[in-house]
Structures are given as C-alpha cells and as structure tokens.
C-alpha cells in the first residue's frame, strides 16, 4: 500500500486501536482493562495529531490534546478518587462468556463492522476515511460487547468509554469540522458520565456491598396470579 508517512502511521494506529479493543475483551484484571483503555485513548489522540498534520488543521491538534486531557489523565484520576482501591485489584472470575468465546464474538463484530460501513466508504478517495470509519465502528461494537460480557462495575464503565473511543476514531475523520462548542460539550459529557457512574458504583458498593452491579437481580416482571 502506498501513501504518505502520516497515512501509513495512521493505519498503524488504527490496527493498534483494534488490538487494544480485543485486549480489553481478553483481560481479566480490572487494572489491566483500564490500562488498555488508556493505551487506546493515546492511539486515538495520535491519530488526531496525524490527521491534523496531513490536513493541516489546528482544530484536530486541539482535539488530540483534549482527548489526552480527558481520557488519559482526567478519567483515570476521577475513578481513583471516587472508588476504593479494592475495585481495581479485583480479578474478574465470573464473566458471562468465557474469554476465547468472547474473543470470537469480538472478531465477528469486527467483520460485521467492515460490512456495515463498507457501503459508506466505497466512493471515498481519502485513505484515512477508508481506514478510520470501519475501525471506529469495530471499536464501537467491540466496546458494546465488552460491556455486555462483563459484570464488574469498572470494566462495564470502561466498555462505554471504549465505545465512545470507537465513535471518536471515526468522528475525527468524518466530522472534524464540528463546531468547537459541540466538541467541548462531548468531552465534558464523557467526564460527567464517569463521575455519575462512579458515584453510583460507590453507592452500590456501600449499600449493597458488591462491586458487581450486574449481579443484582431483584427487579423483574413475575407473572401475576389471577385469583
């Protein structure tokens, strides 16, 4: 494949983003999941910088910096402040689906993403769009799967954030001229998500005494007995 150096590097980033998504699905340690999320966010910002360089847009550089500030620095810090240390040291034993099967699902989702977005990028000549949109969709779907397959609070939250990373990975190439205030709102929203869900997780830990909110199954519909 021929192309300029930023394009080639961007393709490398895209591949690594996908690998990071797989790694999040495969990791048992809560701490490990967070680490891979940070790596994925760094790759996302690297892709921002590369794009910013090749399209000479200051806007994308700011976006990359914002990504680092929010997802690499602020979010792990907020989580540390909000939640006691035993949330991090946990090793998840009881996943809904075992890890090899889970990876297989993730692989299928990646292929599905390619098909879903295939029709969108057929007429596009910009190689970065062709790379980023399918990978972004794959990141979104695999993040959703990571969220479904896990029961611990923090990995579920990271699943949501990984989905967000996927959406952004596509967003930086197709919507990089989004008004700045909207982007600021999006980043603020992401941090708020972490604060609110973190608070909720802490409340659940204090009241119910579990770090696995998915284990709570009191509320559901049981058939009524007609007398």
């Amino acid at each position: 494949m021929t192309g300029s150096i930023p394009e080639a590097l961007n393709t490398l980033c895209a591949g690594l983003v996908l690998i990071a998504a797989f790694a999040m699905v495969a990791t048992r340690q809560v701490q490990g999941v967070i680490r891979f999320f940070i790596i994925q966010s760094l790759l996302l910002s690297a892709s921002c910088f590369l794009l910013g360089y090749s399209r000479s847009s200051i806007h994308l550089f700011i976006l990359g910096v914002l990504t680092i500030l929010s997802k690499v620095i602020a979010i792990p810090w907020v989580l540390r402040r909000l939640l006691p240390v035993d949330y991090y040291e946990r090793r998840e034993i009881s996943q809904v689906v075992n890890i090899p099967a889970s990876l297989l699902v993730a692989l299928l989702l990646a292929i599905a993403a390619e098909f879903l977005t295939g029709s969108l990028v057929t007429h596009v000549s910009d190689p970065m769009i062709v790379v980023n949109v399918p990978i972004g969709m794959a990141g979104l779907l695999i993040g959703a799967w990571a969220l479904i397959a896990r029961r611990e609070a923090i990995p579920q939250l990271i699943g949501i954030l990984a989905m967000e990373n996927g959406a952004f990975f596509a967003g930086i190439v197709i919507a990089n001229e989004l008004p700045f205030i909207a982007e600021l709102g999006v980043f603020g929203g992401v941090i708020l998500i972490v604060i609110v869900v973190g608070l909720l997780t802490r409340n659940i830990g204090e009241t119910v005494g579990t770090t696995e909110p998915a284990a709570m199954r009191e509320l559901r519909e049981a058939p009524v007995s007609w007398r």
Binding site: L120, L140, A144, G166, A170, I174
Partner: peptide, 10 residues
C-alpha cells in the same frame, strides 16, 4: 450514547 454519537458524526 456512543452509538448515537456515531450517528451524529455521520
């Protein structure tokens, strides 16, 4: 949220 965000980008 991320799903619809992807939608808004598109």
């Amino acid at each position: 949220a991320p799903v619809s965000l992807f939608g808004f980008f598109t």
